[in-house]
Design a protein around this nucleic acid. Sequence first.
DNA 1: GGTCGCATACTGCCTTGTGCAGTATCTCTG
DNA 2: CAGAGATACTGCACAAGGCAGTATGCGACC
Lengths: 202, 202
Amino acid sequence: MPSDPTTTSYAVLGLLRLRPWTTYELAKQVRRSLNWFWPRAERKLYDEPKRLVADGLATAEEGFTGKRRRTTYAITDGGRAALARWLDEPPAARSHESEGMVKVFFADAGDLDQLRTTLGRLEAEAAERLAALAELAAEAEGPFPERRHLGALCLRLQHDQERAVLDWTRWARTQVDTWRSTTDPGRWDTRAVLATMTEEPR
Amino acid sequence: MPSDPTTTSYAVLGLLRLRPWTTYELAKQVRRSLNWFWPRAERKLYDEPKRLVADGLATAEEGFTGKRRRTTYAITDGGRAALARWLDEPPAARSHESEGMVKVFFADAGDLDQLRTTLGRLEAEAAERLAALAELAAEAEGPFPERRHLGALCLRLQHDQERAVLDWTRWARTQVDTWRSTTDPGRWDTRAVLATMTEEPR
DNA sequence: GGTCGCATACTGCCTTGTGCAGTATCTCTG
DNA sequence: CAGAGATACTGCACAAGGCAGTATGCGACC
């Protein structure tokens, strides 16, 4: 017997609820939307629907494009029910991974130029992502116009977070430029920066 | 021959550069600091130093507390060099995981109450994390006062992102409260929300 | 008509990482 | 002197990532 469905199972199930998909289409759709807050390798998205079928949450239909085999997956009533139940459960804690921040944190193992380069790369990344989000927001017609309001809600958060990162990279750059070295911030007022985080509204 | 060190390897190496640690101490230190932008299970942190030793980047010293075995790891010169070289490499892309956002995105599989509950949980989580960050910022003396400026830089970003999430949860709540159902936003102006993301400074 | 490049549609395999259970010993407190 | 919590790990099963490899379909261009 298969173990409990994972969040990734439910994410795929959520898409299957909208319409049937082949795994290839599923993978592309995930890259457009879910990838922002639930990134999963394409490889994984080819395995996941099989598990859903094994659990009775989806069905698989074999088809052909000429000689090429093609599996289309669709949600079942049991899948729809499981999805609705899952919405009630408390979500797992958020998690952020940023190798760039690890490099900033350990910047004192290198020099100021290395730190500036890392900050520049983080800035470029944030700018690119913000541009990609703006493009998504500008699209007049997405594939599911009846779900546009939910997309807008999610896009808004993604955008605000990306904006925060971009603004930070620029601020960090100006701050670091006043340092004497990665180990000596000179007259930089560390305490003042920290204080802004303690004297804030909740 | 072991494969290339991972980001996690370098993260542990970065801490070993500061002083020698036992894995237990290492795990606790990671939870305090790195966990915010490079979260790794405690289990992994027990394996990682062994690989560093195998690669010649660290050394292990067996010790005893009474009868209890205890391994203390320390960085080598090769480790210090590898760490400095690693700082030059472009960092991997950031990645954010939020099961809560997946639930918001697929909220149309459930009702408004479920969506409101999920938003409430996301808000509580963000508030807790923000409070934890404020506490870290308020600490007069951390274990490495000479690295306080780097900690402040990282803390600032973490704080700004958390703030963005908290503000969003509250905004989202007010918006959702005007909806008729999860599938019908009523007079809510989806287009206006999306427009704010396209008409912005870069 | 042919072939080149890109899209479609997967599978295998190895490594990384998570979560949980289990096994000790040490130290402090009442 | 018992019990609770901290210290210090290991084993195992499963989730997930990354890369290479194997096809076929289809449209563009010569």
